[in-house]
């Protein structure tokens, strides 16, 4: 069944393509697995009818924008819009070349969390619906209710910018997110309480599992360098072999390179095939940036990027 918001999106997308206001539409269509979606990138107005909006539109589609070229209409949630704004701030994207189709988002449902709570595979579930602060899962006509904050993805729980500020078309009225910053930073809190040596051991054990697939980098809208330092050969900054030391250096350097541009969208953590808790790095970085420089990534398209801006007096206590 097509929802009202989907109908609106489809007609908006069709119109944009028909009138030549955009050359390409980037959105979501139903994926091959139950409940999941897959990006739809199309120039064909007929394909607009395949566009979907549901509580599982997890991908941050802004990652595709730079490579498409021309005018692009993109379906974007609040957090994705922050990534777009950040790209505009970095002059990687011109504002007039994107038509932002804003989707008010009440938080994305984490299918892994649902599977764990239900003890069932997603294929065995009949329906999952969001109703205000609850999520209702139906299996063979019996319903189970969960508080939304138990089943939303971690980066949604940390969302503090649900209000969409930058858009061209807004598909619906504002949605209310259920946030739980404490829950979203529970691992950070645990780590902060540890002595440094223990923290190091924790991260070491995580990066021993990293296979250097670079999926985290590929899905990241802030990682837009044409040539990443890991692929430099003269000098070779880090060994290409997946040794934990180099895996850790790769990720730490990546995080520092995206500081002030990373919106903690959570795409890297979700892409990681070995489950390294990258959100606990990206969120911590966002907290550091906020604390030191009162800066939030992607919230003001006219602001100078974090690393290009400065105040004459700041962080002086860290320098001799």
């Amino acid at each position: 069944m097509t929802s009202k918001i989907e109908q609106k999106l489809r007609s908006v997308a069709r119109e944009l393509l028909e009138q030549g206001k955009v050359g390409t539409i980037v959105g979501y269509e139903a994926g091959s697995l139950k409940f999941t979606n897959t990006p739809l990138i199309t120039k064909d107005k007929e394909a607009a009818d395949r566009l979907v909006i549901n509580p599982f539109i997890i991908n941050n589609l802004s990652v595709f924008l730079k490579d498409i070229g021309g005018k692009v209409g993109v379906v974007a949630k609040g957090c994705d819009i922050r990534s777009i704004v950040s790209l505009i701030q970095d002059k990687q994207l011109a504002r007039e070349n994107v038509v932002i189709i804003g989707v008010p988002c009440a938080g994305i449902i984490d299918l892994d969390k649902i599977e764990k709570l239900m003890g069932k595979d997603r294929d065995e579930l009949d329906d999952i619906v969001r109703e205000n602060d609850k999520v209702i899962v139906t299996v063979q006509r019996s319903k189970k209710e969960y508080p939304a904050k138990d089943v939303l993805i971690d980066s949604c729980l940390a969302c503090d910018q649900p209000k969409i500020k930058e858009y061209d078309i807004l598909l619906d009225e504002e949605a209310t997110v259920v946030c739980d910053d404490e829950a979203s930073r529970s691992l950070i809190k645990k780590l902060e309480a540890m002595p440094p040596a223990q923290r190091w051991e924790f991260w070491k054990s995580q990066f021993e599992r990293c296979i250097r697939c670079y999926a985290c980098r590929q899905v990241c809208p802030a990682c837009y360098c044409k040539r990443c330092f890991v692929e430099e050969t003269e000098p070779a900054w880090i060994s290409p072999l997946p040794k934990w030391q180099d895996n850790l250096i790769f990720q730490v350097t990546r995080m520092m390179h995206v500081a002030g541009r990373c919106t903690d969208c959570g795409a890297c953590e979700r892409a990681c095939p070995v489950g390294i808790p990258l959100h606990s790095l990206s969120k911590k970085m966002a907290e550091i940036v906020q604390e030191l420089f009162e800066y939030q990534a992607g919230t003001d398209k006219d602001a100078l990027p974090l690393m290009a801006a400065y105040e004459s007096k700041e962080a002086e206590d860290l320098i001799r």
């Binding site: 995080m255 520092m256 911590k284 604390e291 030191l292 420089f293 700041e314 962080a315 002086e316 320098i319």
Partner: peptide, 11 residues
């Protein structure tokens, strides 16, 4: 200074 401050905290 911005880079150093962030690096110090993150490390």
């Amino acid at each position: 200074r911005r880079r150093i401050a962030i690096t110090k905290k993150f490390l």
